[in-house]
Computed example of a mutant assay.
Amino acid sequence: MSAVELAKTLDMPREQWLKLRKKGIGGSDAAAIIGLDRYRSPFDVYADKLGLKPEIPDNEAMRQGRDLEQYVAERFMEATGKKVRRRNAMLQHPEYPFMIADIDRWVVGENAGLECKTTSVLSKYKFSQGEFPPNYYVQCMHYMAVTGAERWYLAVLVLNKAFHVFTIERDEAEIQALIAAEKDFWESHVMKQIPPAPDGSEATSELIKQLFPEARERAEVALFGYEDKIQQYLTLDAQVRELEQERDKIKQELQLAMADAEIGRAQGYIVEWKNQIRQTLDTQRLKKEQAEIYTKYLKPAQTVRMFKIKEVS
């Protein structure tokens, strides 16, 4: 391994490990930086490294992923006959110190590593046909860049369904492109504390809500110079409404053609309009007839910021 050992992680408290991750770009950050992570954005990574966003609270998926890591590693050894070991260290690229890696396992006797993944049965990727999320691939490329490995193995446990092993060979051209992207991100944004441009992703929208959850009452800010952006927003918003209406018009035509049929067939298409039973709670009646119970289970009020634009003369 050509990587530098930044810190030993054996028995390191999770809070300390989370702080250590902010010292550079890790494998789980790499795909977000280049726009290949559906759950995170470049803005999200930027805010995380500068400590601007709250830490994500531990959830069941995260807990199971950690707890099942050893099981996935054992299944990999069973399936391949290879041996793996823990590295127990935060690693750092010898030339680009902002590139860090906390790898799952190192493969004994090979210049290779192993990434262990646990995913839901609801995953849209067809692992049995060789498909896996692009962020998995980028993460493995990042680890190869940091460690100098020739290949990286990816072991994926699809809960209650299957177990798959993939081999990702080192691609020098892609690794150099990834290094360049991470270098630009770190030097142009994190080091200079200049946020990357918004990308329109849901991840960025959610982060902005977290950063600015409440407005200061009656506080104003000058947006002179943003007139073109505001007009562009209003134009696009109108276009979206027109497209939604056109889409709904076609939907109505199809529904009229199907009438009370559940399934419609066309050349290359199947259209479904199925029954669904939904039950809703009559909150108004509950509030009126069982006010005490209604109040007891009422969730605390939350502040929601509504965004709208009004034209003024």
Rank of each mutant, 00 (worst) to 15 (best):
13 P>V: 02
8 K>I: 09
21 R>G: 10
39 Y>G: 08
39 Y>S: 13
10 L>W: 14
47 A>D: 00
50 L>A: 06
27 G>F: 07
39 Y>R: 13
30 A>T: 06
47 A>Q: 01
26 G>V: 10
12 M>T: 03
8 K>H: 15
21 R>T: 07
16 Q>F: 11
17 W>E: 12
52 L>H: 09
40 R>N: 11
30 A>G: 09
36 L>T: 04
32 A>K: 04
18 L>R: 12
35 G>T: 03
14 R>L: 15
28 S>Q: 01
35 G>F: 08
14 R>P: 00
40 R>L: 14
22 K>V: 07
33 I>P: 04
36 L>S: 07
41 S>G: 09
27 G>N: 04
24 G>L: 07
10 L>A: 14
9 T>M: 10
39 Y>P: 03
8 K>W: 11
17 W>R: 13
34 I>H: 08
20 L>Q: 02
22 K>Y: 09
46 Y>C: 01
34 I>K: 01
35 G>C: 09
11 D>Y: 14
35 G>L: 05
32 A>M: 08
45 V>D: 01
32 A>G: 06
7 A>Q: 11
30 A>F: 09
45 V>G: 00
51 G>H: 10
49 K>H: 12
21 R>A: 14
31 A>V: 06
31 A>R: 05
15 E>L: 12
33 I>G: 01
30 A>W: 04
17 W>V: 05
11 D>G: 10
7 A>E: 12
41 S>I: 07
37 D>C: 11
44 D>W: 15
50 L>K: 06
14 R>W: 13
10 L>M: 12
35 G>V: 01
51 G>E: 02
44 D>K: 11
13 P>D: 03
16 Q>D: 15
11 D>M: 14
26 G>E: 08
24 G>W: 10
27 G>E: 04
46 Y>V: 03
39 Y>I: 07
24 G>P: 01
30 A>H: 05
44 D>L: 08
11 D>V: 09
31 A>M: 06
34 I>W: 08
35 G>Y: 07
8 K>D: 08
17 W>Q: 09
33 I>Q: 03
10 L>H: 13
17 W>M: 15
32 A>E: 00
24 G>R: 07
33 I>F: 10
41 S>D: 01
42 P>Q: 08
10 L>S: 11
21 R>V: 02
47 A>N: 03
25 I>C: 04
50 L>N: 00
42 P>V: 08
25 I>N: 04
14 R>S: 14
37 D>I: 02
44 D>Q: 11
44 D>H: 15
23 K>D: 09
52 L>F: 09
